[in-house]
Every structure is written in C-alpha cells, then in structure tokens.
C-alpha cells in the first residue's frame, strides 16, 4: 500500500508572498516532514514505576513542563503530566518502546499517521507564530515545546533550533490542510520558500 502524506496535495513548492528583492537564503522556509515515528506515552495514574529508570534510545523521560529531551534521531516532548510524545526518525524504535514500556504501566499509542507535520525555519518564525497563537513566544527557547492553538486549531510546537529559528509543528492530520493554510497565510507577509 502506498502511504500518502498528510499535506501531499496541499504543499506546493516554490516562492510565495513578499519574497521579491530578498535573499533566498534568508527567506522563511516551510516544509512538510514525513515518515516520522510518533508515539504517545502516558503513565497510568495508579502506576508506581519510576520514570528515572527508563531509558529509551539513550534518553531518560523527564516530567518537566515544556521540556524536550533529544538526541540526533529522537525527541521526547512533554505533553502533560506523565504524558509524552516520542518523535523519531527511527521507525524500528516502536519495537523497543513496547519492550521498555510495560503495557500495565503505560498507555502506548502509535500516532505516526495521525498528524500533519510542518517545519518552519528562518528568523521570522516567531513572528509568524505570534500571529495566530496566544502563547508568549518571547520565552520560547531551544528544546521547549508547547501545546496551544493556532487560529483555533490545536497544535504542538517544538523548537528544534534558534540560529535560525527552526520549529516543528504537529496538528491533527484531518486539520492539517487548514493548519497549513493558516501558517502559510501568516507567512506571506514575510515571503516564504516552500521546500
């Protein structure tokens, strides 16, 4: 079976908006990220297991708000109290997850195909986000993540880098097209390159 990405029919490559007379290197870049492993991990309320002893892809879970722990392949986003999103380019990590996290202690849900993922890169990223999201992005730093809304659409933002800003955003797949249009409409003012 062929897998079709969430924004397959929406994401068109090229230059858009106020891009004329601007250096293409400095333009905002919009891309769709595909083929990631996305797993939601939730520790049951009655579970007594200690998360400090759990090691997944050499990363230890941390119950710290808005924090991301990461290595070059995997990022673990805090999603709520004892609730995490594990994002990885290693698809085979799912098997390890099922071994490491006992299903009597954790609810493990593979969400890989249920999210649309957009990555924004450039110096104007925070300005784009500020247009639709009520969060104070002035305090949004590297390896921070938030759940919030963008023009009414619930999304998760993960700050991967700050020089230049690089933010990965996840929305429900069924809202992906609306979310994409919302983000790209906000980006027109600055001009963007869809890659």
């Amino acid at each position: 079976m062929t897998s079709i990405s969430a924004l397959n029919y929406t994401h068109k490559l090229g230059l858009f908006g106020n891009h004329e007379n601007k250096n293409e290197q400095n333009l905002l870049k919009v891309s769709e990220i595909k083929n990631l492993l996305i797993v939601q991990l939730v520790k049951y309320k009655n579970s007594s297991v200690s998360i400090e002893n759990i090691d997944i892809d050499n990363l230890k879970l941390k119950n710290e708000p808005q924090s991301v722990i990461s290595n070059k392949d995997t990022r673990i986003l805090w999603n709520g109290p004892y609730n995490w999103f594990l994002i990885s380019i290693k698809k085979d990590l799912l098997k390890v997850i099922y071994e490491v996290f006992k299903n009597t202690e954790f609810a493990i849900t593979d969400l890989s195909h249920s999210r649309a993922i957009i990555e924004l890169e450039g110096n104007d990223v925070k300005e784009v986000l500020k247009k639709g999201c009520p969060y104070n992005f002035n305090i949004f730093n590297k390896n921070n993540c938030i759940n919030s809304t963008f023009n009414g659409i619930a999304f998760t933002a993960d700050m991967i880098d700050v020089d230049p800003y690089k933010v990965r955003m996840f929305s429900l797949r069924s809202f992906g097209e609306s979310f994409y249009h919302s983000i790209t409409d906000s980006s027109l003012e600055f001009g963007y390159k869809a890659i």
Binding site: P65, Q66, G80, P81, P134, Y135, N136, I146, N147, S148, T149
Partner: peptide, 17 residues
C-alpha cells in the same frame, strides 16, 4: 481576554481553556 495560570504549564491564554 483572561490569562489563566495552569498549575502544570504556566500562564496561558483563556483561549486554551
């Protein structure tokens, strides 16, 4: 608009609640 301090996430807009 109200700002509500979520005991888990910190100060957030009422839109999220």
């Amino acid at each position: 608009m109200l700002h509500i301090k979520c005991p888990h996430c910190g100060l957030r807009s009422q839109n999220e609640f």
